[in-house]
Computed example of a mutant assay.
Amino acid sequence: MTDTQRRVAIVTGGSRGIGRAVSERLAADGQAVVIAYAGNDVEAKATVEAVEAAGGNAVAVQADVADETAVRSLFDLAEQRFGGVDVVVNAAGIMVLSPLADAGLDDLDRMFRTNLRGTFVIGREAARRVRSGGAIINFSTSVTRLNLPTYSGYAATKAAVEALSPILAKELRGRDITVNAVAPGPTATSLFLDGKDQETIDRMAKMNPMERLGRPEDIAEVVSSLAGPARWINGQTIFVNGGVA
């Protein structure tokens, strides 16, 4: 397969957690993957090496997803290295938990900057550059339905992502580009596990009828479909949570 035939994906937050699983899955599907990461060079290098060891093709680029100049450079690199962009996955995100009464506004601003502004900036560039037949996949969360205490700020940023995704889908009418959001439930990543005691983790694992936490690979499987064969799903939020909500 030549570079002109191969699909090319940009995955933000692609060096760890769900983002890493998505990067590895899309590479296994035959896509060239540009992994955008915030700052951990070791994790980014390890992800690229894992992709290449499995026979895939990937490159890692440090980029602030909320910085429009950095995002333009990210897309420039993808086009220069692989010839274009077909799939964009917005997996970058941060989560700070606190009751609303005790929430710090600096933490709220950080979450909005990465989770919402980052999705907006990446989405704007994707709308300008993704090739016909492509897909834009944003990340929400099942917490927008579960209404769990301490998640108000995080859920608010993700509810906004759910709102903008179907609007962008309609704005791209006639270009054969799908736009969807994926909303994971509790998933065994550091983003979810950090700061939680074992009792809380066990309780949340049993919230769904499958009685386990999601695995990053569970989420990557759905992203893989949206990034490839699932062309008739558009403007939707897909809840990937084992039936918790």
Rank of each mutant, 00 (worst) to 15 (best):
E125W: 02
I35L: 07
G19N: 06
V59Q: 13
G39A: 09
T237F: 08
V59P: 01
V244N: 08
A183F: 06
A135E: 04
V244M: 13
P166Y: 05
V89T: 07
R25P: 00
I233V: 15
D218E: 10
D176T: 11
D194W: 03
T119E: 11
S15R: 03
Q5Y: 11
I219R: 03
A21F: 01
V42R: 15
A155K: 01
T141I: 08
R129V: 10
K206N: 12
F75H: 04
I233D: 09
A156Q: 01
V130K: 02
T12R: 01
A227N: 13
S23D: 03
L100E: 07
F112L: 13
V121G: 05
F192V: 04
V34T: 08
V96K: 14
V222I: 14
G243R: 10
A63H: 00
R131C: 10
Y37C: 02
A50Q: 14
A78H: 05
A156I: 00
T150G: 03
G30E: 05
N241D: 15
G30I: 04
S15M: 05
L97V: 08
V223I: 15
E221V: 09
N241H: 14
A127T: 11
G14R: 05
A230G: 09
G123Q: 02
P149M: 06
G30N: 05
V130P: 00
G84P: 09
G228Q: 07
S132W: 02
T189E: 05
A38H: 11
A169Q: 10
G19W: 04
E79F: 02
G243L: 11
M210R: 15
A53D: 14
D67V: 00
A53E: 12
R20A: 13
N90E: 11
D86R: 04
M204E: 15
S190R: 15
E68G: 02
R131A: 14
E162R: 04
D194L: 11
D29R: 11
M95R: 10
G242Q: 07
K170S: 10
L97G: 00
A156C: 05
G104D: 15
T69F: 11
A50G: 06
G93K: 00
R81G: 06
A28Y: 00
A60W: 00
D107Q: 12
D86Y: 07
A36P: 02
V88A: 13
I233H: 08
Q5L: 13
D197S: 12
R25E: 11
G55Y: 03
V48G: 06
A91K: 05
T237K: 05
A127L: 03
I137C: 07
A53L: 12
D86T: 09
A245I: 12
A169E: 06
V89Y: 09
N241P: 08
E217F: 01
A46N: 11
N57S: 15
E199S: 14
A155T: 10
T2N: 14
D194S: 13
P149H: 09
R16I: 09
N90I: 05
D218Q: 10
I18D: 02
R124Y: 08
A36Y: 00
A36N: 08
R215C: 00
R25K: 14
V179D: 02
N138V: 04
M204H: 10
L226S: 10
D76N: 13
A169R: 02
D102V: 00
L213F: 04
S165Y: 06
A46L: 12
V22G: 01
S142C: 11
D3A: 14
D3I: 12
N208S: 12
